[in-house]
Design a binder for these strands. Structure first.
Length: 316
DNA sequence: AACACGCGATACGCGAGACA
DNA sequence: TGTCTCGCGTATCGCGTGTT
């Protein structure tokens, strides 16, 4: 224990952590060496030194490649976090040098980046133009990984199942009901009285298996006696969905706020069919393990202000 | 079985920087 | 200024796997 403590405090350096992360990424000494611009023996020797210093092996070597040991998994996980924190420090130092006194890195789901976030960012910039805003748009799994490593401060998107989100604090902002939408060019004539049966021969845009809304949507189709559409495309990209709806006779499930926005551009129209169980619960999430930066705190307050007045806004 | 190949480990040495 | 440490280089070895 004393040896481990001494080695971690005195010898384990960012260079070593970069090496461990590269080895985990590539699972190959030669490729990790190329990535780090060193020779393969340098990697081999450095890893051996780290393992000797710590007193346990971090990677299992086999002809089929490298595999992390439980010790290795632990150290690589912390190395990623520490390197991300150092990158934060670098960015903040750079920002201070350039007269920028604050920053917030926010990850968001595609639908949010079209509707809520542009308003939030413009409000933030009105009140705090010196705050640097760094954005990442991705699916929730990828955003959660970035949040864990500290590369982003906040996620704005669909709220996860609370039982599976032990490592984050969260705040619900609003509920955005989903509606069925078609492209305005392809709107049916009897749109006000249209029934489910009339949509059977449309191309359906479905969320992929495993997404939060896939099962509820399948249930709704079943309740309305619509067999799962053979003519369908799976997509979670809001931009792609809007594009498909505009360009062909298709129907898709979209958040009301997205449809509202594209209706104002003359591109989409919502169908008056009831989807009682389908509502996106949109919220903000942040890591329990790190204090929110002043920039992230400010963005959270602006998120709360911005959703006030939306039909499904959470009471604060 | 013999061979080629890929991959990680080892031996040895060099250059740069820290320190007495 | 000499010595030591660190980080990395080249050359080479040993092992496992795939191919003929």
């Amino acid at each position: 224990m004393a040896k481990l403590d001494w080695y971690i405090k005195a010898n384990l350096k960012p260079r070593h952590m970069q090496l461990l992360v590269a080895l985990d990424n590539f699972r190959h000494f030669g490729q990790a060496a190329q990535y780090l611009n060193v020779s393969q023996p340098a990697i081999s020797k450095s890893l051996a030194e780290i393992e000797t210093g710590l007193g346990f092996s971090l990677f299992e070597r086999s002809p089929r490649g490298l595999r992390l040991t439980p010790h290795g998994e632990c150290l690589v996980r912390y190395s990623r976090t520490i390197l991300a924190e150092l990158a934060h420090a670098r960015d903040e130092l750079h920002a201070i040098s350039n007269g920028v006194v604050n920053r917030v890195a926010v990850g968001m789901l595609p639908g949010i980046s079209l509707t809520l976030m542009p308003k939030v960012i413009s409000k933030l910039k009105e009140t705090s133009p010196e705050t640097a805003v760094i954005t990442r748009e991705a699916q929730m799994d990828a955003l959660r990984a970035l949040l864990r490593t500290g590369e982003i401060d906040l996620i704005v998107g669909l709220m996860p199942d609370r039982s599976q989100a032990h490592d984050v604090d969260s705040q619900t902002l609003y509920k955005d009901p989903m509606i069925l939408a078609v492209g305005q060019q392809h709107a049916p004539e009897n749109i006000d009285t249209i029934g489910w049966k009339a949509l059977e021969d449309y191309l359906w845009i479905m969320p992929p298996i495993g997404s939060l809304v896939r099962e509820p949507i399948e249930l709704i189709l079943e309740q309305n006696e619509i067999p799962f559409p053979a003519n369908h495309v799976e997509s979670i990209s809001v931009i792609l969905n809007v594009g498909v709806l505009q360009s062909t006779r298709a129907v898709g499930f979209l958040p009301t706020e997205v449809v509202k926005q594209f209706r104002s551009y003359g591109q989409l129209i919502g169908l008056p069919l009831s989807l009682p169980t389908l509502a996106y619960e949109v919220g903000a999430m942040w890591s329990k393990e790190r204090a929110l930066s002043p920039g992230a705190e400010r963005m959270l307050r602006i998120l709360e202000e911005t959703v006030v007045g939306l039909p499904g806004a959470a009471a604060t």
